[in-house]
Design a protein around this nucleic acid. Sequence first.
DNA 1: CATCTCCGTCTACAGGTGTAGTCTAAGCCT
DNA 2: AGGCTTAGACTACACCTGTAGACGGAGATG
Lengths: 125, 125
Amino acid sequence: MKAPVSVSEAESVVMAVLWHGGAMATEAVVAAIAPERRWQESTIKTLLSRLLRKGAVRATKEGRRFIYAPVLTREQWLSSESEGLLDRLFGGRVAPLVAHFSKQRKLSKRDLADLKRLIEELDND
Amino acid sequence: MKAPVSVSEAESVVMAVLWHGGAMATEAVVAAIAPERRWQESTIKTLLSRLLRKGAVRATKEGRRFIYAPVLTREQWLSSESEGLLDRLFGGRVAPLVAHFSKQRKLSKRDLADLKRLIEELDND
DNA sequence: CATCTCCGTCTACAGGTGTAGTCTAAGCCT
DNA sequence: AGGCTTAGACTACACCTGTAGACGGAGATG
């Protein structure tokens, strides 16, 4: 059980780009993020370094620059984040969370339908 | 839509005590927490002040001390925390989270059974 | 080879957090 | 009334985070 690299909010935006586009240089990450998030190039560079230091990404030199590739997978990240929350708030179980949401009327028709289908699937196999 | 007071990890431990025991003085909070968490009284006092400043608790003077009562409810807290996560990770919907858990084999029999019952209930009303 | 360019690194800085020590004054006790 | 206790206020401090500017040197260009 390796220490679960923890990725901050802003860092996760960068990870998302890498998960989506695979290995790429800083420039490409910037191109993918800067428009909406309105971050300076410098900010993204910092985030990449921090992710590198944390071991969440890997960098291979190519000419004078680095190509960054995700090491932490999206699945791992989803798991650690959501299990963390589930543990803290709902005793580590999923059902109480769903119950909470339904009680707060936060379960959309669509969610309900999806859940139903999901449960059925899980049931007969 | 009032700004959703954000409560930190450590602060939430204090909130938990108040949610569980209702209004009480610092002393009682300390008594409830100090044993396991091994926090100094001072730490708990700090957390209470921060919660007060944030408006998550209310304090009424009684003699020379304060009686603290939760303002933020547990439900509100559960909602903001879990919606935050759902939004960030699963497009704000519950089903994808459940799907993720099942894919990772993190759905216990019990969870599954509870979910099934829950869905049925929600379905016929 | 002399320059120029651009990329990664270093530095910065405010705000939040975890964790705790110190001080002051308001009550309580004798 | 005078002293003692103690609760809340103030101060501290390191680390993480969000956000970004500055700079030096390794390549690219002419």
